[in-house]
C-alpha cells in the first residue's frame, strides 16, 4: 500500500491511540517545502524508459500513459532523476 496524505488529521491527543502501534502509511505532512528546484518532465522527449522512476529515492515519479509524472507533494528536488535521464527530458526549474 502506498502511504498517502490523510484528509482528516488528528486534532486532539485523544484522537491518537495511546499505545505505540499505529496505522501503516499514515502521512500528515508534505515534503514539497524542502525543494529549491523542481524537475519538469518534457513529455515530447521522454521515451518512457523508467530509469528516473527507478532511481528516485522518494519514489515520487510514477508511470503515466507510457511516460512519467511527478508527485510534487513529496518531491524534494534532489535532481537524481535529471542526471539519470539519458535523453535529457528532465529540466530542473527554480522554485519561485
Amino acid at each position: 500500500m502506498k502511504p498517502y496524505l490523510r484528509d482528516k488529521l488528528p486534532q486532539k491527543l485523544s484522537e491518537i491511540p495511546d499505545f505505540t502501534a499505529y496505522e501503516a502509511g499514515y502521512l500528515v505532512t508534505k515534503n514539497a517545502g524542502w525543494r529549491n528546484v523542481r524537475p519538469e518532465i518534457d513529455k515530447e522527449k521522454c521515451v518512457g524508459c523508467l530509469q528516473c522512476y527507478l532511481h528516485c529515492p522518494d519514489g515520487v515519479i510514477y508511470k503515466d500513459n507510457g511516460k512519467v509524472a511527478v508527485d510534487y507533494d513529496f518531491c524534494k528536488g534532489c535532481g537524481i532523476c535529471k542526471k539519470i535521464c539519458k535523453v535529457g527530458a528532465i529540466r530542473m526549474e527554480a522554485e519561485k
Binding site: M1, K2, P3, P10, I16, Y22, G25, Y26, L27, V28
Partner: peptide
C-alpha cells in the same frame, strides 16, 4: 509519529 511512511508492517 503520527507520520508513518511505511506502507507495510
Amino acid at each position: 509519529f503520527p507520520q508513518l511512511c511505511f506502507g507495510n508492517n
